[in-house]
Computed example of a mutant assay.
Amino acid sequence: MEVPESGRYNLVVQYANGEYSGSHSYNNNVVERYAQISVNGGEAETVYFKNTISWQQFATVTIDVNLKKGKNSIKFYNNNTYNGGANPYGGSNGSGTSPFVDTVMVPKQYTPAFDKFEIYAQPSVVDKKEK
């Protein structure tokens, strides 16, 4: 990614996420996929991508990134660290008697299906003094 000036930019990511967990017939358990995003080899930020209900339905997420003048690299990956979240009942089943098994809640830890990436410069605020 090449930009004309150093500064803060909006990275707009278009994606689809139609993943479900389990096989409940009337209460779909949607999965919010996530990705780690690293700019120019810096510390990665985890970004979550809401479920879009279908792999043919797309949504966008806007992420603020600091870019340097010239060429930049933006790396998207998934480090598989999500544990499925907290179950208020304490386990993998409704009564909380079964120990938590992350593969029950999040069977596959993949990034969403990325479709398009766009970069926009953030507008700068100019302080105009009135006379």
Results as ranks from 00 to 15, higher is better:
51 N>H: 06
51 N>K: 06
52 T>F: 05
52 T>S: 10
53 I>H: 14
53 I>R: 15
53 I>T: 15
54 S>T: 04
54 S>E: 07
54 S>R: 09
55 W>K: 07
55 W>G: 07
55 W>T: 06
56 Q>L: 11
56 Q>F: 09
57 Q>R: 15
58 F>M: 09
59 A>C: 08
59 A>W: 09
60 T>K: 12
60 T>V: 12
60 T>F: 07
61 V>H: 07
61 V>E: 13
62 T>I: 04
62 T>L: 00
62 T>Y: 03
63 I>W: 08
63 I>N: 04
63 I>G: 02
63 I>Y: 08
64 D>C: 05
64 D>V: 09
64 D>W: 07
64 D>K: 15
64 D>L: 13
66 N>A: 14
66 N>L: 14
66 N>M: 13
67 L>G: 04
67 L>N: 05
67 L>W: 01
68 K>I: 06
69 K>S: 04
70 G>Y: 08
70 G>I: 04
70 G>Q: 08
70 G>D: 06
70 G>R: 03
71 K>V: 12
71 K>I: 11
72 N>W: 01
72 N>S: 09
72 N>L: 05
73 S>H: 12
73 S>G: 12
74 I>H: 05
74 I>N: 06
74 I>L: 01
75 K>T: 13
75 K>G: 00
76 F>I: 02
77 Y>R: 08
77 Y>Q: 08
77 Y>I: 03
77 Y>K: 05
77 Y>E: 12
78 N>F: 01
78 N>R: 08
78 N>K: 03
80 N>Q: 15
80 N>D: 14
80 N>Y: 09
81 T>M: 10
81 T>E: 11
81 T>S: 13
81 T>Y: 09
81 T>A: 12
82 Y>H: 07
82 Y>A: 12
83 N>K: 14
83 N>H: 13
84 G>N: 06
84 G>I: 04
84 G>Q: 06
84 G>L: 07
85 G>K: 06
85 G>A: 08
85 G>Q: 05
86 A>L: 14
86 A>W: 05
86 A>H: 11
87 N>H: 13
87 N>Y: 01
87 N>M: 08
88 P>Y: 03
88 P>S: 15
89 Y>H: 11
90 G>C: 03
90 G>L: 03
91 G>E: 00
92 S>F: 01
92 S>L: 01
92 S>N: 04
93 N>H: 01
94 G>S: 03
94 G>H: 03
95 S>D: 12
95 S>F: 04
96 G>V: 01
97 T>R: 01
97 T>H: 02
97 T>S: 09
98 S>F: 11
98 S>W: 11
100 F>L: 14
100 F>P: 00
101 V>K: 10
103 T>H: 09
103 T>N: 08
103 T>R: 13
104 V>I: 13
104 V>A: 04
104 V>R: 06
105 M>I: 10
105 M>F: 15
105 M>K: 10
106 V>L: 06
106 V>T: 07
106 V>Y: 07
107 P>W: 11
107 P>D: 09
107 P>V: 05
107 P>G: 10
108 K>E: 12
109 Q>C: 11
109 Q>Y: 09
109 Q>H: 14
